[in-house]
Every structure is written in C-alpha cells, then in structure tokens.
Simulated assay, not measured.
Amino acid sequence: MSYLGLHFNWIEEWSQFFQSCNWYTFHPVHLEIEDDDAMGGFEVSIVIFGLGFRIRWNHTETEQVSHIKDLAKLFDENGDAKP
C-alpha cells in the first residue's frame, strides 16, 4: 500500500440535489490549505460553484501513519484489527 506521493480527487456537489438526503452541502467558493504534520502531508482544496478538486502530497511517513498501516495489515490478515 503506497502512502507517499501525490493524490488527486475531483469534487462534485451538484448530484446530491437529485437525491433524497438528510442534508445538503454546497460550496459557492471554498479554498482550504492544510499542512498536516501528524500524517506528513500538505493538502489544497478548491471548489467553485460546487465543482473542484483536492490535491494532497504525502511527503513523510510519520509514526501515526506507520501505526495505521500496521493496523490495516492486521485487518487484512485476521479480518479484524486485533493483534
């Protein structure tokens, strides 16, 4: 499982209005910049009129990331996250 590197996601908020939902979230304009020390990444999200993208660069595998990867490996091996 690769953690380091660039990750890209499209954001589309219009389709929710054609479904029955408990709540609706829509961003006319949204800009978010995050420096995530705990998980070793830097992230930028941009949304304009409900369409946008998120790009994240995971530059460091921190102790927390290693712990989560170990738990995921145990889950894959045992079917649960118990050691």
Rank of each mutant, 00 (worst) to 15 (best):
L51N: 09
H59N: 08
L51S: 11
N58F: 05
L71E: 10
N9F: 07
S66A: 14
V44M: 10
C21R: 11
I55N: 00
E63D: 09
D70G: 02
K69Y: 00
E63F: 00
L74D: 12
F75W: 05
I68V: 12
S45Y: 05
T62Y: 09
S15C: 00
W57L: 05
D76Y: 10
F8S: 05
M1V: 10
H30D: 13
F17K: 05
R56W: 03
A72K: 15
I33P: 00
D37C: 03
Y24C: 08
F26N: 03
L51R: 13
N22R: 11
H7S: 14
G52I: 07
V29K: 09
T60H: 13
T25C: 02
G41W: 06
F53E: 02
F75R: 13
Y24H: 14
F8C: 01
F26V: 03
F18N: 13
F8A: 07
T62A: 04
T25R: 06
N78I: 01
K82V: 14
S66L: 06
N78Q: 08
V29H: 07
H27L: 02
H59C: 05
L74I: 15
F8D: 14
S2W: 06
S15N: 13
E12V: 03
F17I: 05
V44W: 06
V44S: 10
G5L: 01
L6I: 08
A38P: 08
G41L: 02
F17P: 09
F49N: 11
K69I: 04
L4Y: 05
Q16W: 02
D36N: 11
A81G: 04
H59I: 04
V65M: 01
S45P: 04
F18V: 08
M1A: 12
L51P: 04
Y24I: 11
Q19S: 08
N78T: 00
V47S: 01
S15T: 12
S20E: 15
D37R: 12
N78Y: 05
E43H: 08
L31H: 12
D70R: 10
M39H: 09
Q19Y: 04
G50L: 05
